[in-house]
Structures are given as C-alpha cells and as structure tokens.
Amino acid sequence: MSGQDNTALLEVRELKKFFPVRGGLLQRVVTQVRAVDGVSFKIDKGLTLGLVGESGCGKSTLGRAILRLHEPTSGQILIDGQDIVGLPRSRMGEQRRRMQIIFQDPFASLSPRRTVAQIIREPLDVHGIGTAQERERRVIELLADVGMGAEIRDRYPHEFSGGQRQRIGIARALALEPDFIVADEPVSALDVSVQSQVLNLIAELKKKRGIAFLFISHDLAVIQHVSDEIGVMYLGQIVEHATVGDLYSAPKHPYTQALMSAIPVPDPTARRTRIVLEGDVPSPMNPPAGCLFHTRCPQAQDRCRTTVPAMLNVGSETNPHRVACHLQD
C-alpha cells in the first residue's frame, strides 16, 4: 500500500520479550530472562538487515517475536504502519501471509510424514488460495523457483540432503508471496559448498521479488555477503547498527570491533591485532548494570559501570550509524 512515504515495510519499536523463570513451591515467577530487551529498527522493502551476535544473545528470539511465534512482552511491530502486536487471531491471519520464516535446521523444519507437495501446498490450503488444481500448479512453480524439479513432489523429506531440504523450506516460505522473511541462520547447518547455493538463491529472491529479509547469523562473512545493513546484538539489545560498508570499515562499538578482529584474514603476512574478550556473556536473567558490555569491555570506564549508554547517531542524517557506547561522546 504505502511505502513511498516514510512508512517502512517493517518497523520494530522497543520490542521486548522476557521469559518468566518459575521457582519455589508455588511456581511463582521468581525472575525473568530478558531475551530481547528493547530493540528498535526499520527494514525497507527489498532490503536485508543482518543480525549478528553470539549464541544466546536473543537473535532467534527476536526473529520469532516479530512473527509472533513468541508473543512479545511489550513493544510494537508495525507492518506498513499497522501494529500487529495484540491483533486477534482472525486478523493476524492476513498479516501472516506477508511474513514468513526460514529455519536453521532443515532436518527439523519439515514434518517427516508429509510429502514435499503437501508441505509446500499447506500455506495455500490454510489461506484458501486458488482451486485445488491451481494449488498443484503453484507447488510445481515454487519448486522450480527454488531450483527443484516437479518429480520430487511425492517424495518425503528424509530422502533429501540438507541443502535440498532447505530449498523445500524456502519454497514453503515463498508460497504465500510474503513481503518479508525472517531467515534464522538458514545456512549454518549446511556444508560450506551448499551454503553458497542457498545464499545465492536468497539473493536472487531478494532481487527478483523485492522481498525484505531479517537475516540472522553468527557468521560474519555470510552476513556481510547478504546484508544491506547490519545490527549487532549483545544480551538482547542492538549495540550498533549501520550499513555493511560502514560497519566493516569502521566499527565503533568495542564489541563489534572485537567481533571484526576475529574474522580470519586470508593473508599469512597481514598483521592484525586480535581483541580477545575476557570472560563469558553475562546471564540475561541478571544483566549487569550500566552498559551491558562493561564486564568484558577492554576500554570500560567508571561511567560504563553505572550509566546505560544512549543510542547515538555518529553517521549522517541520510546514512545513520547508530551505536550505544559512552566512548563515542
């Protein structure tokens, strides 16, 4: 509908997802796991936001909360300006057509007792799209879109390799012609040789159909390859958000700098300083006061331990580069 004006395809405002931890005799809520703790960003049509971070930082929870697979604790998720948090089931159905998800583990994401055709046709069945014949035809088109032949339609998932299964999962996600897809580590379970095939398929879909992606990964090389913008997550918050070029050439946040220094350089003579982070990620049940990163930050100062840093724009108005760090003042 809109899109020409300032409304982004997807805008997330202050999204939070806490998981209650119950304990004691009466199973009262004793504390909360702050998996996603106040995340905001926008994704425009056809663009890809990459989301990096260590395991356990809340990347996947964020992706699932946007699709309301986990009900958000608070915050807003706007699709073309309409908030989908709290929409009743009946009206959520239409919105589900606009956004889909691709999963990490291609062995767990397809039901073992359904044929490929049944799996890909189900979204069409659920939303009552087309006649039975049209759906059958559409399944074959979708298979062709992901580079697979119609002859596999009656086979079962266990007969395929990881890469092939991932393609079937992508075909299922495409069936409803979504505007936006959450790709939750879609290649990290695949062999490197197959990774590039699936990444190229995703790049092609993005170019041809203008689908926007939220691409979640812990692999910095993969995320650089597919993203337009990158958000770096730490303990449920985005600590730095910039375009790929800016982030890789001039990372501002000490955490991003440490991540970047861990990328291997294919040149044995190149000199580089690795920043090795001390200690473990603090528990999201009991996050540290002040800056979340101060417990591991090599440049931490006194104010980092007490004051929460605000998100600052250190780039320009048209090309923002946001970072939450006191050292940028």
């Binding site: 589900r96 998800i101 999963f103 583990d105 767990a108 994401s109 039901s111 189900e122 999962g169």
Partner: peptide
C-alpha cells in the same frame, strides 16, 4: 520443533497443528 513453528507461521490453527502435524508423528 521447527516444523511446528513453521505451521504456526503459516497460520495453521492449533487444532490443525495438533491433528495434522503433531499426532501423525
């Protein structure tokens, strides 16, 4: 499992998920 999450994402009803996706397995 992720195929159950996929069914949620597609918009399958809870009963549909129980009887079409979970029970057959």
């Amino acid at each position: 499992l992720e195929y159950v999450e996929a069914a949620h994402a597609i918009g399958v009803s809870e009963l549909g998920i129980i009887f079409r996706h979970i029970l057959p397995n």
